[in-house]
Design a protein around this nucleic acid. Sequence first.
DNA 1: GCTAGCCTGACACTCAGTTTCATCATGGAT
DNA 2: ATCCATGATGAAACTGAGTGTCAGGCTAGC
Lengths: 197, 197
Amino acid sequence: MDTAGRTNTRDIARAAVRAQLAQVAFTLFRREGFEKVTLDDLAAAAGVSRSTFLRYFGTKEDAVLGTFDNKGERVADALRRRPGDEDDWTALRHALDTAIEEYRKDPDAALALTRLVRDTPALCARQLEKQHGWCPALALALAERSGRGPTPTLGQQVRVAAALDCLRVAVDHWTASDGHHDLVTLLDEAFAALARG
Amino acid sequence: MDTAGRTNTRDIARAAVRAQLAQVAFTLFRREGFEKVTLDDLAAAAGVSRSTFLRYFGTKEDAVLGTFDNKGERVADALRRRPGDEDDWTALRHALDTAIEEYRKDPDAALALTRLVRDTPALCARQLEKQHGWCPALALALAERSGRGPTPTLGQQVRVAAALDCLRVAVDHWTASDGHHDLVTLLDEAFAALARG
DNA sequence: GCTAGCCTGACACTCAGTTTCATCATGGAT
DNA sequence: ATCCATGATGAAACTGAGTGTCAGGCTAGC
């Protein structure tokens, strides 16, 4: 999509190549381990040059976590679409349904991914960082909802961060249970744990 | 300290050198910017070899954030010392007084540090990762307090993570206010924001 | 003083990520 | 159909972080 929102042939091709590269990388990472696979290995396996691979994914981690950045904005949009009379917690909880949607759509793929991330410190760290990167957009969405200008309060920032903790902890437990526990239930349980008392 | 807890001459010397290296690094980072300073620069400025510098701090980031790892255990210990009849939130809130102690002891140094971290993406990420690394120990402490075995519940994990969010957000605001706001007040406010409603 | 265990510096190495440049394909306009 | 501008690719050189090895030197303890 260009800046006006049109989708171009080139962009479609790019997205397809990108998906293909990510697929190859994921397979290789799972078989050999993330650390063992070098950029040269990835490029060779995908049949492109190292340069090209790095143009599609700025870092090795992004070949795995590339889709993650986007999700933050998606959740923020979902948050903005929540009815204005919901309190922050309720709105956040519902907005997070957006984030867990793909876990439910393809649990096996999601499990393979979360396991790879969980077992790779570098990916853990990078995922944490990316998820933390969602905070400003989410806090901004809360601020807009509250109608008190574009500057999130400390409280809104805390609630956003805590909501993302709920997501993370819930997904961790879901992964640890090999996908047997229900992610929605876990997420509800996590949110319930925030209530005082 | 050796494994038995005794402190010998070598360890004292090591700690002194380490502190000295950290000081030199911090000064250089503030003056030139974290990214601009190479390990060779650091080694040269400190009058040691690159090898030696890397032996004291496994990574460049650790020259700044080296003290951070320790803090997690300190907070966990503080948590264990809280009276058993306190609920998780209250115990966590009080345990965090340990973490903010040095901000109050030497606000200027703390401000310089938080500013450097805040303005350096690599340090931000690494700090987030280290702080997240506290979670298991803190959750374990909560689990022990609750007397229901050594396995933290999902709820305890969530509360620990949320408490650390409070710390982070409070410190962020404190830094943004150039230390003018009261960190204790900010932290209380952050905890208050977790209450539903 | 001797020795064993360390700290240190030197060096070579791997690998991630950046930058530059030449080449090649393609889509769109004439 | 041809031309051209844009952008995708690959090659290569480079920087810098972090690892591993090894030899020499200092020091604590005997």
